[in-house]
């Protein structure tokens, strides 16, 4: 996988906050909660990592947009585009 694609960067963030998941088995379209038992603390950790890495602000009400890898990718793209 190209280490520079957005998806692969998100995946590495995910494994950094949740080292106990197996990324190769992850379905990017499925909700993380269902696939890898993400709870509120995991979500927060993931949101914090995304926010910091990409320099984007994520409101509490927007955590739902990080529900799956694919959703997160779309969200980050949208925010980065808005940032210009």
């Amino acid at each position: 996988m190209d280490p520079d694609t957005l998806e692969s960067r998100l995946l590495s963030l995910l494994t950094s906050v949740a080292p106990d998941i197996e990324p190769q088995n992850l379905d990017p379209a499925r909700a993380l909660r269902e696939q890898v038992d993400f709870d509120s603390m995991d979500t927060l950790h993931f949101a914090a990592a995304v926010s910091k890495t990409f320099g984007i602000d994520i409101a509490e009400t927007e955590y739902a947009r990080l529900a799956s890898l694919r959703a997160a990718e779309a969200f980050v793209r949208e925010r980065l585009a808005a940032k210009g």
């Binding site: 927060l44 949101a47 910091k52 409101a59």
Partner: peptide, 17 residues
């Protein structure tokens, strides 16, 4: 919680638990 978290960066926010 919403008021408290609104002003904070993600990593400093509190959760309900």
């Amino acid at each position: 919680l919403a008021r408290h978290n609104a002003t904070l960066p993600v990593q400093d926010r509190l959760i309900e638990a």
